[in-house]
Design a protein around this nucleic acid. Structure first.
Length: 478
RNA sequence: GGUGGCGUAGCCAAGUGGUUAGGCAAUGGAUUGCAAAUCCAUGAACGCGGGUUCGAUUCCCGCCGCCACCUCCA
């Protein structure tokens, strides 16, 4: 089936066609590791993970890179008065910036793990690519796209007329609307830094380009350098939050294309920012949630994934804690259906004669069709739940149950929100619980419901739920 | 001011020129000692005003309201 994606570069839905048929090269703007990752960050990262999983489901050989920015964006971008965010945090916590970076990188990786990410093939750190950045700067200087002033290197926007093609910024308007620039070194206020020199900066490197002065890289060059080094001059997909579109991605395009003379990215995908309780998430409003906050409230990675993925990435989305509870219930509904199928498949529960083949295929087709339509996760989930209802109504035979389970496994491989098929083994139930269950049955037969309920409570305290069925009671691990 | 987007039932959220989205919640029923799960049934919708059309929530125009980006931010 044709995959259609909304390309921010053209502002159109386009059929996705990678440069090399069957192979996809993807780059994602990852975290800047100067604070704990929050749920908004993860809405963007989840798009990357969903793409990876879905493209692989569709048979593509995917190579995926997500960067970790562990060096300096200016709090005030290119302006001299700004302070590197990592450095600012380091000063606040009174430790060196490298420690800050590693600490938050560890937390980020832990979140990836808890949210069940398929690990990108590379998670490069910007600081490991200073050499490549310098090489790029060298090329840009050589080709006349960049100039040096007092050791600082700037990209010369006037040499790249296509600047603005991604964000549709008209340069004249930008100029008018811009606030007063204090940097008199730049030939044009819109020129951006490739390399900065500042004695006070704590992270410094020798400049590996001609006439280079010791300093540190500008914000935008890292992505161009890492993408070029790990994926090559041209890639198929580049993702990030909508805020990255300008100026960050615009600058990436300018640098990369100036260097190579080739189109940098085929499809740009930008994730809409997450709202919380109807407003922009902010610390002062008290609606600011880190991923760890959510875990601290007792929700699982799958529940958070579900809550963040219910809405298609390009739609504005309002996050609430209530949506996590809905996620919990919804996931349980799917897994209840899978449990029953698993029991039938294993022969521990009587089935019927349905083979579920046609319905499973219909469901998978609907699921894939929704995702092919610009990753419409809402539609994909609707397909899953419609299938749940059909499965619950049906009386499948063992093979039919297996077929349906395969469909659910596929849904989960792509979405990653349901987890593996629940275990249905009965042999693992401790003997004393089985005895308790028998006592409960005896009490029920004698209409001694107080005793029966006491038995059930005890079983429940041991982590099992009693499920009464026409064939008798059954124990399930909670 | 520039750019992009949104307004669908109690909440969230798909989609379509005429035929059931889906989730959560609610109500009635089946099952049940109770509970859980499941099934059946029920109600409720397309911001406002025009236009095109046999027919518009779905296309066009206008209006109102909301949001994001344009500045560090995913």
């Amino acid at each position: 089936m044709k995959i259609r994606l909304y390309n921010s570069l053209t502002n159109r839905l386009e059929e996705f066609r990678p440069l090399t048929p069957g192979k996809v090269l993807m780059y994602h703007c990852g975290p800047t590791v100067y604070s704990s990752p929050h749920i908004g960050n993860f809405r963007a990262f989840l798009l990357a993970d969903l793409l990876r999983r879905f493209l692989e489901d569709q048979g593509f050989d995917v190579k995926q890179v997500m960067n970790i920015t562990d060096v300096g964006h200016m709090t005030d971008d290119d302006e001299d008065q700004g302070e590197d965010k990592l450095q600012a945090e380091a000063r606040k916590q009174k430790v060196d910036p490298w420690k800050i970076a590693r600490m938050y990188e560890d937390e980020f990786r832990d979140c990836l793990d808890k949210l069940d990410f398929v690990m990108p093939h590379a998670l490069p750190r910007a600081t490991d690519y200073i050499g490549q950045m310098c090489a790029m700067i060298d090329t840009l200087l050589e080709k006349g796209y960049a100039y040096q002033v007092n050791g600082n290197v700037y990209f010369d926007i006037s040499k790249f007329p296509e600047y603005g093609k991604l964000s549709n910024k008209v340069l004249d308007e930008l100029e008018e609307g811009a606030r007063v620039e204090v940097n008199t070194e730049k030939r044009d206020p819109r020129d951006f830094a490739l390399w900065k020199v500042d004695d006070k900066h704590l992270m410094q490197w020798d400049a590996g380009f001609r006439d280079g002065v010791r300093g540190f890289p500008g914000w935008h060059i890292e992505c161009s350098a890492m993408s070029g080094d790990l994926l090559g001059e041209q890639i198929d997909i580049h993702t990030g939050g909508e805020d990255n579109m300008f100026p960050h991605h615009e600058c990436e395009i300018a640098q990369s294309e100036a260097c190579t003379g080739k189109p940098f990215v085929g499809t740009w995908l930008h994730v809409k920012h997450l709202m919380v309780d109807g407003e922009k998430m902010s610390k002062s409003k008290g609606n600011f949630y880190t991923v760890s906050d959510i875990f601290g409230k007792g929700y699982s990675g799958h529940e958070l994934r579900y809550a963040l993925m219910r809405v298609q990435y390009r739609q504005s989305m309002n996050f609430t804690l209530a949506s996590l509870n809905e996620a919990r219930t919804a996931i349980a509904r799917v897994n209840e259906a899978r449990k029953r199928l698993a029991r039938i498949a294993a022969g521990v529960e009587a089935g019927g004669a349905d083979d579920l083949a046609a319905r499973s295929e219909t469901a998978e087709t609907a699921f894939v069709g929704a995702l092919c339509d610009d990753l419409n996760t809402s539609g994909a989930l609707a397909a899953v739940f419609a299938f749940v209802t059909e499965v619950n109504k049906a009386a499948p035979d063992a093979d039919g149950a297996k077929r349906a389970l395969a469909a659910f496994d596929r849904f989960d491989r792509v979405l990653g929100v349901f987890g593996p098929t629940p275990e249905v083994g009965v042999d693992s139930v401790p003997q004393e619980l089985l005895e308790l269950l028998e006592r409960r049955q005896a009490a029920r037969a004698a209409k001694d419901f107080a005793t029966a309920d006491a038995c059930r409570d005890e079983i429940s305290r041991a982590g099992y739920q009693v499920v009464d069925t026409p064939e008798g009671p059954r124990l399930e691990r909670v």
